[in-house]
């Protein structure tokens, strides 16, 4: 699923004191790519993810995903588009604490007409034995696996990952990244991962660096590594 951004502008704050989060970003992401967006705090990478995922509006420019211009879509249509094509993973896992692992994944599965393979996904992320546990009974890595399963159970074409390893230790983080890499390889899901950790760029097909709302670097990673092999910075 290709993503095309053309001169995307996003400004926060008042007219008198505007904060330019995105300053005319133009970008093309090819289907099946594993993209890592790097940048320090305040560089605009989270805003980029939000506008690409239709979670926030743009002030100017356009975003087209698989031929659909999401920036002009009415809210209802955008919701339908999101449920059909997009998946999200967040730093804080964002699970429902009142539901079991299986139920959390079912929430995602329910969005797909054919129901989604809940048990298959749970098994695939290595939580078969934890399906009836509650999130607080799991480690951080396990919770993130649940979040991944929930995002992937509806088989999205595009997966947005917002600092998915930000709250994890190195070993667990590598496990999660390996899982994402594996899913990208086997399911051909386009992955857009944003992080401030430059080491993660080693697993990407393409690395985009951001600074002050602009793309400061955009290159294909010629030395792509498996997550287990990366040097953690």
């Amino acid at each position: 699923m290709a993503v095309i951004l053309e001169k995307v502008v996003k400004t926060y704050g008042s007219k008198e004191l505007p904060t330019h989060a995105l300053k005319g970003i133009s970008l093309r992401i090819e289907e099946g790519q594993f993209i890592v967006v790097l940048g320090p705090s305040g560089s605009g990478k989270s805003t980029l993810l939000n506008v690409m995922g239709g979670l926030d509006n743009v002030n100017d420019g356009s975003i087209t995903i698989d031929g659909f211009t999401v920036t002009t879509m009415p809210q209802n249509e955008l919701t339908r588009f999101r449920r059909k094509h997009l998946g999200f993973i967040f730093q804080q896992y964002n699970l429902l604490q009142t539901l079991t692992v299986r139920e959390n994944v079912e929430i995602g599965a329910r969005l797909v007409e054919e129901g989604g393979d809940t048990d298959g996904l749970i098994e695939r992320v290595g939580l078969k034995d934890h399906a009836h546990k509650y999130p607080y009974q799991l480690s951080g890595g396990e919770q993130q696996r649940v979040a991944i399963a929930r995002a992937l159970v509806k088989n999205p074409k595009l997966l947005f990952c917002d600092e998915p390893t930000g709250a994890l230790d190195e070993e667990t983080a590598k496990e999660i990244l390996a899982l994402l890499q594996d899913l990208n390889n086997t399911l051909k899901t386009t992955v857009i991962l944003i992080t401030h950790n430059a080491s993660i760029g080693q697993i990407a097909d393409r690395v985009i660096k951001m600074n002050s709302g602009e793309i400061s670097d955009d290159h294909l990673n010629q030395e792509k590594r498996h997550a287990n092999e990366i040097h953690w910075g």
Partner: peptide, 13 residues
């Protein structure tokens, strides 16, 4: 609020 936002993000209307 949290659940509502979450549901919205993952595609519920």
């Amino acid at each position: 609020t949290y659940e509502i936002s979450l549901f919205k993000v993952i595609g519920y209307d």
